[in-house]
Write a protein that binds this DNA or RNA. Structure first.
Length: 173
DNA sequence: AAGACGATCCTG
DNA sequence: AGGATCGTCTTT
């Protein structure tokens, strides 16, 4: 019952993006809702978006208002609305100016990035949230999963080869 | 100013 | 297979 919790700090996110995506599996994504309720969800599925060279990565199109936070050092939230309906939760990774991030595609009980955003009641106000200091969204160390698998990423056919084939989606088995 | 479209999900 | 639904980026 230590009062200080094993919150994951910024330096964790500032590692190589693929490594961060892998190591996020099994960790607790913690949300404090507006009513004060705190809920912990283990991360079950992630995808690495590897910077300006990666045609599937949003920073490939350049530095814009939307992608600005992705060019900061790892440890911030990158969130955006897709299909007018779903908030996609990402954690900025790597060093400043790399333009990399990890998409959270699944948490225990909720598979699919749209469902993650909905369950956690996320919105644009989380853009740029600092995961090391936030009181409403952060990560805590969880048990390392026994097995994981790597597959190509979902929904990025437009990116073409070789990006479409990179095994940068990671799931707990 | 207008148009195109997306790292999705649900229904039929 | 197709519709929901809107912010962002591109084109005019």
């Amino acid at each position: 019952m230590s009062a200080s919790v094993n919150r994951i700090k910024s330096d964790f996110f500032q590692q190589d993006t693929v490594l961060v995506a892998q190591k996020l599996l099994g960790q607790y994504l913690v949300r404090q809702f507006p009513d004060g309720r705190i809920q912990r969800y283990r991360i079950t599925e992630t995808e690495a978006y590897c910077g300006i060279e990666d045609k599937a990565c949003h920073t490939n199109k350049g530095r814009t208002a939307r992608t600005e936070v992705m060019f900061q050092a790892g440890g911030k939230v990158y969130i955006y609305l897709i299909y007018g309906m779903y908030w996609m939760l990402n954690f900025v990774s790597g060093k400043a100016d790399e333009g990399t991030a990890v998409l959270i595609r699944g948490i225990e009980g909720f598979n699919g990035p749209g469902k993650v955003g909905r369950e956690l009641q996320l919105d644009k106000s989380f853009y740029g949230e600092d995961l090391e200091t936030s009181t409403r969204l952060w990560l805590e160390e969880g048990p390392v999963p026994t097995q994981m698998e790597a597959t190509p990423r979902i929904g990025i056919a437009y990116a073409g080869e070789p990006w479409i084939s990179k095994p940068w989606r990671f799931c707990c088995i």
